[in-house]
């Protein structure tokens, strides 16, 4: 008898409980890590949506006399700068709040689209096999061997920069990792008994792939998605730095890091706070995704959601 079956025995009594919204609430209140992550993300979303309300200063307000002030300092007119100012005297904290709009949405939408595209291609390729799989996977190999930054520069040069084009370019250049992973997972799942069973029950291929296989392979894909969001926030930074992404003086986290690099020796706060923002966002997304995966997985969730 393995430990699993013992645990199975243990919760037989707690079995008949329907999981409700308040169970999830209770579960997240118990899990401090997931709680902290979701609090951070809620704050981030609230600040992003209500940037006009929460930002103490105008994000593009020049004030050359108060350039490069360290955190917690007061400006020449007595204004308070929580996280300091940049070389043009713009408030870092306000720019972080406004910058979140661009960074977070580029990350979320870009990663989301590439995930959608990659997972669709990868799952179907892995399940179907044959010529279709060969074509998709060679396409993946080919695109992975392109220097993506260069391609992105070229495409944005032709199409012009800006928010929408940036997202489109990211989706087209980042779906391959998802496709590779999804294909591997589908290859595994294809031989699983439950897939064979579904086939013998007359289930159509498309339903087998998206209704039966997808929920079973979602966990690693979600983890990859959270990582990819962080990567895209950083890619946005590179492109904006090179002048092909968000156009200054509009703030974005990546642009702030790029601008701050010149002053990294003298004014550490210019790169530190946007860097920290990217790091915390990625980490929180990752931790929360992990928690969501655990509580929604019927195999695992009883560990987290126990009737009390």
């Amino acid at each position: 008898m393995d430990t699993n079956s013992i645990e199975l025995e243990a919760r037989k009594d707690a079995r008949d409980v329907r999981v409700t919204g308040s169970d999830y609430l209770r579960a997240i209140l118990k899990d401090r890590v997931a709680l902290a992550a979701s609090i951070f993300l809620v704050i981030l979303v609230v600040f992003t949506l209500g940037a006009e309300f929460f930002a103490p200063h105008r994000p593009m307000g020049l004030n050359l006399r108060d350039g490069l002030l360290p955190p917690f300092s007061s400006g020449s007119k007595g204004e308070f700068y929580l996280l300091g100012t940049d070389e043009l005297g713009r408030d870092i904290f306000s720019r972080l709040i406004y910058g979140a709009r661009v960074s977070v949405s580029v990350g979320l939408i870009g990663a989301g689209l590439s995930c959608l595209l990659g997972v669709t291609m990868g799952l179907t390729a892995g399940y179907r096999g044959g010529l279709y799989e060969d074509i998709v996977m060679r396409l993946v190999d080919g695109m992975l061997s392109l220097p993506s930054l260069l391609v992105a520069l070229f495409v944005l040069f032709v199409l012009g920069g800006g928010f929408v084009n940036l997202i489109l370019v990211f989706s087209v250049l980042h779906w391959m990792v998802f496709a590779r992973m999804a294909r591997g997972l589908a290859l595994d799942a294809r031989t699983a008994t439950y897939v064979q069973a579904a086939k013998s029950l007359g289930t159509t291929e498309i339903r087998i792939v998206f209704y039966h296989i997808l929920p079973n392979v979602a966990a690693p894909i979600i983890v990859l998605l959270t990582l990819e969001i962080a990567i895209l926030i950083l890619s946005e930074a590179s492109l904006s730095f090179l002048g092909f992404g968000v156009q200054p003086p509009d703030p974005s986290w990546g642009l702030m890091i790029a601008d701050g690099r010149e002053h990294i020796r003298s004014a550490w706060w210019l790169v530190t706070f946007p860097g920290l923002a990217i790091f915390l966002t990625a980490l929180s997304l990752n931790l929360l995704a992990n928690w969501v995966r655990a509580v929604t997985d019927p195999v695992q969730r009883w560990r987290w959601i126990t009737a009390s």
């Binding site: 699983a192 439950y194 064979q196 069973a197 579904a198 013998s200 029950l201 007359g202 929920p215 019927p298």
Partner: peptide, 30 residues
């Protein structure tokens, strides 16, 4: 519809992410 199969491994042949209702309803829906 007329030819069905019961597999050896009852742990593997049911999709772990689907409720039993949906599992049994699957062929009826199909």
């Amino acid at each position: 519809r007329n030819m069905q199969m019961v597999f050896q491994d009852p742990f593997g042949s049911l999709n772990p992410h689907k409720q039993l209702f949906d599992q049994v309803a699957e062929p009826i829906r199909n």
